[in-house]
Nucleic acid binder design. Sequence first.
DNA 1: CTCATATGAGATAAAATAGTCTCAAATGAG
DNA 2: CTCATTTGAGACTATTTTATCTCATATGAG
Lengths: 191, 191
Amino acid sequence: MNDALQPLNLKEERRLQLLDAATELLAKRPTASLAEIAEHTRISKATLHRYFASRDALLTALAVRALALVSAALADCRLSEGAAPAALRRLIEALIPLGDKFYFLLNEHLWNVHPDLVAAEQATEVPIMQLIQRGQAEGSLRADLPVAWIMYTLEFTVFAAWQAIYDGNIARRDAAHLVLESLLGGIIAKA
Amino acid sequence: MNDALQPLNLKEERRLQLLDAATELLAKRPTASLAEIAEHTRISKATLHRYFASRDALLTALAVRALALVSAALADCRLSEGAAPAALRRLIEALIPLGDKFYFLLNEHLWNVHPDLVAAEQATEVPIMQLIQRGQAEGSLRADLPVAWIMYTLEFTVFAAWQAIYDGNIARRDAAHLVLESLLGGIIAKA
DNA sequence: CTCATATGAGATAAAATAGTCTCAAATGAG
DNA sequence: CTCATTTGAGACTATTTTATCTCATATGAG
């Protein structure tokens, strides 16, 4: 699965560029037709079909790539090392640029078509969950909030940041800071 | 638009039940076909068409109802009264059960079809934005986080709660408390 | 420049979804 | 119970989306 991260020839590079542009659009508009995806990626329908034989092939490629990138990011973050808040920071910084891909992994409508990838997707959740548990055990994260809930709020806040960047409402360079501040410290002013 | 909240005859009651069930499914799976919506709502395709003449009619009804319910909830919350944190609490408590409808209002893929409702949707954002601004001016909400970002994180956290309830991962009765705690106070343990 | 390859536009076919309709059965009120 | 209304199943039609293909043009490497 790390094949998705190997150095590539030009055509493969282009294919991934198209795939990433398609992912963006599909994150914003899951109902987009292939004609709309072609338009968004600035290629003709025929060319889109040359790169991805079918809608299913496109969605599969998307899922595989999302899994590979998120898994690699998680591994790079070494979530089991260092204090939990610092690890969480590394995680958030890594995930924001992958917000659309991360969003796809979290949504069930893709998995209906690709149940074979479900186990791999669930495997991406394990290190995050363990990090939260570790933080609670260490006393650095609140233990009164259920782990499951912390995961939801983390995941949705990361996607909110991706969306806010995409919409042009926050600057990319500010995003991680904003997520960290609001998620970790909350929005209430300190006394 | 408050017509959507008037006492109803039995058939209209049933129609709204169907509409609400369809809204749930479409929040989880925007690509659901009418056949899938019919199955989810436990009626036949023919009956679905009897209640909503077309997919467009269904989506329009959904948007109109979502707008009516969210607008009414916002009005009930009297966001300009009382301290900002208390008003925020009332807001969150009101919005969670409307999470699927709120999510729809925030997403662009519906408005492509119904640009006429865009102004009304944007009007629902104004009292929320004003509340945040008021909180910042009063010093109860952090002024270092942009208003736009606070709105994103609020909206996505509310939807996260709706989703978590729908998935069976948190209890409905706990949801508002969890949102308030994590959003307002953050997830870092207090020293 | 040449030439191999990639691409777009648009026509066409196939598949899926949306929409329409009929009639028997189910439902609910009186 | 009767009877008016609603519903489901499924056949059928219409529309949209997906997929396929051709050929002229564009592109890029040498």
